[in-house]
Design a protein around this nucleic acid. Sequence first.
DNA 1: CTGAAAGCGCTAACAC
DNA 2: GTGTTAGCGCTTTCAG
Lengths: 337, 337
Amino acid sequence: MAATIYQVAALAGVSPATVSRVLNGGSVSPAYADRVREAAATLDFRPNRTARSLRRRSSQVIALIIPDIENPFFTALARGVEDRAEAAGLSVVLCNTDEQQVKEARYLDVAMSEHMSGVVLAPASAATDLDELLARRTPVVIVDRSSRYDVDTVLMDNENGGRRATAILYEQGFTRVACITGPRDVQTAAERAAGWREVFTGRNRRVNPDNYIRYSDYRVDGGRAAMADLLSMRHAPDAVFVANNLMSVGAFQHLLEVGRRPPAVGLASLGDLPFHTWEAEGVTVLPWPARRLGLQAAELLLARINGDDSPARLVVTDSTSADDGPATTVAHLPAQG
Amino acid sequence: MAATIYQVAALAGVSPATVSRVLNGGSVSPAYADRVREAAATLDFRPNRTARSLRRRSSQVIALIIPDIENPFFTALARGVEDRAEAAGLSVVLCNTDEQQVKEARYLDVAMSEHMSGVVLAPASAATDLDELLARRTPVVIVDRSSRYDVDTVLMDNENGGRRATAILYEQGFTRVACITGPRDVQTAAERAAGWREVFTGRNRRVNPDNYIRYSDYRVDGGRAAMADLLSMRHAPDAVFVANNLMSVGAFQHLLEVGRRPPAVGLASLGDLPFHTWEAEGVTVLPWPARRLGLQAAELLLARINGDDSPARLVVTDSTSADDGPATTVAHLPAQG
DNA sequence: CTGAAAGCGCTAACAC
DNA sequence: GTGTTAGCGCTTTCAG
């Protein structure tokens, strides 16, 4: 049914090698090239990518592995990766690990055994095992959360994000700014909280910061519950820094439900509240440019795929930077222990 | 670097065929099987899927092609497909067409040339060309929007959804219920509007329904603009049926912005407002079970992949059905013209 | 510039 | 139950 390179060759009266050459830009006499193209067209020939990958030992596909496909942060990141990859003629396949290490391992496995030409990975956990992937010299870029490997990594400046968001709330006149962050064992959560803690302790010297931080789950319901918990304290905070987009939605919902919408209680979020375009309603939003992260990650990956073998790079983007601005710092990773 | 079946065979002292058999469940003596497994383990052998696909002429992956990865409806649908496919040991690769026919065509192309074992497609347009895919007998299931092909299709009962949502608003006491629907040339938009029109004309006999319908774009901003437009009419409606989740968000935002939150103006949505869990706030939400649609589509696809060749089926789910309920009608498609 | 031929790693007849 | 062998469709030396 599907035409092969041999049939095209036969119809054009040339060898399969010649057909292959016109497909891949080898040097072929114009006359032959035309005949081949014509034959290919009439047979509706479509090169078999599986065979090509087998032979070339690499495919024209990269994998993007993310922990939560239903989080708009990651879908926006995916758009960034896609846009850049598409421009380079690569297809992106999106894999959802659901924050589970086993699923992540399975998809990494698929990436290897499908000989994908690269992987962009937002790790589900700090324990992710990339040994094999790296042993096979598959280009890998880590994004959003860092890993214990010496590979290209694209991160946000989480600590500074926490610091700035918190500082803004104090500047708005609030006097006791609490923090809702993610799971204790997720690095980004710890870093964002660290930024908050620094500012908090500077402003509320007599207060134990541990009383004003809640470790939640980066999800809507977790954010709502944490906000409810904070507001029920004896000395409740008058504002809250929330460390990601989804928890901010939950926190905001709770405020609406109890009739204390900002600025009755201050609220600052790292990243847009998805599908709420009402900063005007009093929520402070620090840009958290997911799409750009994706673009950068794809950029690094493409370079590696094209043979770049310089030392691993670390790209840290700060939320203060303008959307197209240059406030992104590039540095080489320190040697790993 | 990567071990092959030959190396495993050599180490185990058997033939490659035997290794293949233990991998794929052929009958092999337990003694040999053990030796093979051991050899595979020590070599960290991982079957090369590319080679396997080339030989078997099919891969263990299915493509899910959706028009908008940033729409929670489609990501939820994707979860459904994934969950079902995973249970069957298939990997799902997600492709985002961005509502563009060219991208859609490209991904269909990839699906073909990668010999994917099936495709679940939410068409970007009515003009989608599946001729080749079907000629190659690739199993295909259409979901969400129908196509001109005689293939398995999983849809919501759009017209009834529009009818019910509208009726509910009238039952709540509103007297003039307008409609915000999707683009004129999108079938689901027309169907949902038709349901609305039926109820509207029954209740407002002297009024021209065309004055109370807005064709927008299924996006947040479009919904907001349409709502603003409707409210500025001389005889403005006192309630609005909005035909999808994102436009409902926009419409709702506008109501908040002008201080007329429901029930000051009635609002009914087909599907949850993403990340707003406040039906309590007066928005009527008809369940629009995206995840279930995905499950059903995957179910049909798996059957086809496993050789089912009965006539094409049409599965229509009604939003009135309980989440796990049976109010889903299954019928055979009429013969196509 | 072109063709012949040898595989990429795996599976599936077909023999034994 | 097991091994031998011939490809899947393509790319890529290597000769010419």
